[in-house]
């Protein structure tokens, strides 16, 4: 690998952050609008991807590897979350026979 660092306008940090934000926002919008529980959780994974990009971009920018280490932790949490959340989804599905998030309104007063 060559150690070339240029000052050309190729992929500035801001662009990465924008993309990360966009992914995050799309994930958020999906989470808030999709009614399928599984897709909702997929959307949270999408939001994780946004975070991952931001982390790595900063890591690259400062040449500080901690950002990437954190991505590993994010990966861990995502995996744990997927395991638990999906187990819960299965349970919920078994109760109501549907994946519709709106089927669960017990939070209402």
């Amino acid at each position: 690998m060559t150690m070339v660092a240029t000052a050309m306008a190729g992929g500035s940090l801001a662009q990465y952050l924008i993309i990360s934000g966009v992914l995050m926002s799309i994930g958020l919008a999906g989470f808030l609008t999709r009614r399928n529980l599984i897709v909702m959780f997929l959307c949270t994974e999408l939001m994780f991807q946004g975070v991952v990009i931001a982390m790595v971009a900063f890591s690259r920018w400062h040449w500080e590897v901690s950002g990437q280490v954190f991505v590993i932790f994010i990966l861990t949490v995502a995996a744990a979350e997927a395991a638990l959340a999906l187990a819960l989804v299965v349970l919920l599905y078994r109760r109501r026979d549907t994946l519709d998030a709106e089927a669960w309104t017990e939070l209402r007063e």
Binding site: M8, A9, G10, G11, S12, Q15, I18, R60
Partner: peptide, 28 residues
């Protein structure tokens, strides 16, 4: 955003970035 500060690579990098970005967003 591209006008904010320096980039990290050359034109190729930029192109790759743009392609991947477009792919990521449209897929998302």
């Amino acid at each position: 955003a591209s006008s904010l500060g320096d980039g990290i690579g050359d034109v190729a990098t930029e192109v790759f970035f743009l392609v991947f970005a477009a792919l990521a967003v449209t897929s998302a």
